[in-house]
Write a protein that binds this DNA or RNA. Sequence first.
DNA 1: GTTGGCGGTAATAGTACCGC
DNA 2: GCGGTACTATTACCGCCAAC
Length: 409
Amino acid sequence: MHPVAASGKDRALLRANAYKSKYPSFTAAIHPTNICGCYLALPAEFVKEHLNQAHDKAILRVSDERTWHVNLCKYGRAFRLQRWMRFVRENDLKQKVKKEDNVSQLRRGRKIGMARKSSAVRRKPSFFKALVGNFSNQLQIPPAFLVHFDGGKVPQKSHLWTSAGSWPVNVKKVDDKFFFQKGWKKFVHDNDLKLCEFLVFGCAGDLGFYVDIYGRNGCKREFVTAERDRPHEVGHGNVIYRRSPRHHGKQNLPSVDPIKYEATNTESETSMHPLATSTGKTVLLQRNNSFNSGKPFFKVAIQNSYICKGYMYLPSNFVKTHLTEQRATVTLRVSDGKTWPVKLVFEGVRGKFGGGFRTFCRDNNLKVGDMCVFVLINKIEFLFEAVIYRKTEASSCTSSPGKSRRRIN
DNA sequence: GTTGGCGGTAATAGTACCGC
DNA sequence: GCGGTACTATTACCGCCAAC
């Protein structure tokens, strides 16, 4: 996608229309609404012809290979590309729009610039590789897979895609065998690939390969990019908070260091936790004010502002000690297993539950005065077990919360 | 120093309207 | 009737300030 620096709309349109791609494409003249309204209307014709309506996510890629995750939504009869303000800002579309219309080329995704996530396995053809031996320097492409390259011609430069981003990689021929070489090492490093893990490579045409990573525990790894506009991507199982490699140095994001991946069995770990199964026990523990789960926790009395404003401050000691990672999404889980993704927002040294907390309060019918215990079950996944004590139910078994400083840590 | 409250702003989601 | 644009309500985020 190339921002066009022509002197007027017509010239820009002319140049955009002259753009030839072997992939489906459309031309969009950026309108102020696209900036003010924060979305881009997609031509219905293009949507009808090329976009499966099941698609709700897309990736925009520009010529220097930076990528942006956006949403595809349908409103009434119109289709929109949403959550694209980061793309607008970082490609400086706003200023140019004010002076003269811009034209961007949007190229359709599944095969090129936009790619649905989490569907690598469905893409054919594909192959798998188990990480054994000396895999960290290079990885061989199965010879039988080479027939899937156009005319048997293997591209020398390719890309490896995960839901966390993409990595350029060179394909080198050695003794009639083809290997991922230059760039592979970085892919291994950035994704913290370990011996005996398992990769599924799905062919994505000229884009390269979509890669699904399966840990030693047999579960697929999910990635969570710690960005402001990706609120609903915390999964369960193997989750890594990671910034896309394409974001390095490009985006004005808070520093987020990759968390080392550990193949833990989350389910067994959490299911053994007393809070997960024994509400009565926790009530008793709380009554004695000697709550000791063996895992970090804090207690809080729900206040009006938590429900109205949709955020809740966390005890600073808890944040300092246990939440060293900045700006992440946490998962709040209640005893029946239901979960809510909630933004963990940092304001200087303190942190608070932000986006999604209102929903959590609403769904759990939290009222002012209700007590909640948040137990940090899994530091890797930022998974909290939330145990709720209703004000009405708990009056006999919990001490009445004071007006101030109601957290007991 | 910590915490909660509040106001301002940006972004998102949804609907209404207009022109072809 | 359809597609695109304009408008609006809601939500999320940020930062300041006062109370404790």
